[in-house]
């Protein structure tokens, strides 16, 4: 008789408990709130799908979602190629490696609110280095009043803060490529571009998948930095979903609509993350995958 040792389940118990208390129970509570109304004191009134209808029909929600998508698209379009480019040009051996790695890691060690504060001061026309320099060059830059300048500042800040992550991931992928690949390419007379296209890029695919997913999810959920730098302004120009959500839940104490918005926000992130993951890993694994249509004559 075949015996199965089930003791391993106890090893995953701590993780299950952690996920349960940090993710599942809060998520269930948000779902419960999204179909009710409350005025505090744990007194709730059934509202059905009212809050979902309200959120889905509000221009405020769609505008914030559009801003989020645009921000993530810009961030990914800049940070991924830039990160790979920097990683390709970093030294592979010698004392320069440690210097580069430390320099790259520095922005990642700074807390989000500090990054926001740094850039809030940095961009100011009166005392900030960036704002003052641009003004001295005759460029009309004011992130407090101009939506384009506010976006420029936020994108620049995010690129400064997070490109390092892509660099470190890509660098880790690059140093793991065996020298034999480069030697073979050299014997074949492959150009620099060909080496990148046929050796480095395929070998980087997995780490880039992680980089894209991490940067997408992080940029899509961005809150602290824009809140500190622009506070969502000027007007609503940089009001992303997370800022809008906090305003609704904490500022206005509209817990029902905020919960409905949270659920929709969560579903959008889940869908887009799944699409990214699927597209980027569709050629990985499952080598034995069976395609019934290919069997047909």
């Amino acid at each position: 008789m075949k015996t199965v040792n089930q003791k391993a389940w106890f090893l995953v118990l701590p993780v299950l408990l952690l996920v349960g208390f940090s993710a599942l129970i809060p998520l269930m509570t948000v779902v419960n709130y999204s179909v009710q109304d409350t005025f505090g004191n744990n007194r709730f009134f059934w509202a059905g799908t009212t809050w979902y209808e309200q959120v889905l029909h509000s221009a405020r929600f769609w505008d914030a979602l559009g801003r989020n998508l645009l921000f993530s698209a810009i961030i990914l379009a800049i940070e991924i190629p830039l990160g790979v480019f920097i990683a390709l040009n970093m030294p592979r051996r010698g004392p320069g490696v440690a210097v580069c790695l430390v320099l790259m890691a520095l922005p990642l060690l700074i807390p989000w609110n500090v990054v926001g504060t740094i850039w809030q001061v940095f961009g100011r026309v009166d005392i900030g280095l960036l704002g003052h320099t641009l003004a001295a060059l005759g460029i009309d830059y004011n992130y407090v009043q101009d939506p384009v300048d506010a976006w420029f500042t936020l994108v620049l800040m995010d690129v400064w803060h997070w490109t390092s992550l892509v660099v470190l991931l890509a660098y880790a992928g690059l140093v793991s490529i065996p020298d034999a690949y480069y030697q073979a390419a050299s014997i074949d007379g492959a150009s620099r571009l060909a080496v990148f296209r046929y050796i480095q890029l395929p070998k980087l695919a997995r780490v880039l998948t992680i980089a894209v997913l991490l940067r997408f999810m992080d940029s899509f959920m961005i809150y602290t930095e824009p809140f500190v730098v622009t506070g969502g302004g000027p007007g609503n120009a940089t009001t992303f979903l997370s800022i809008d959500l906090v305003q609704m839940a904490v500022g206005q104490f509209d817990l029902g609509p905020a919960a409905a918005m949270s659920i929709i926000y969560f579903l959008v992130i889940l869908l887009l993350s799944w699409v990214f993951y699927t597209v980027m890993t569709r050629n990985d694994g499952h080598p034995q995958a069976h395609n019934p249509q290919s069997d047909r004559p």
Partner: peptide, 9 residues
């Protein structure tokens, strides 16, 4: 009570 359970959810 803080979880605001309803029969439907």
């Amino acid at each position: 009570a803080w979880m605001a359970w309803t029969p439907e959810t």
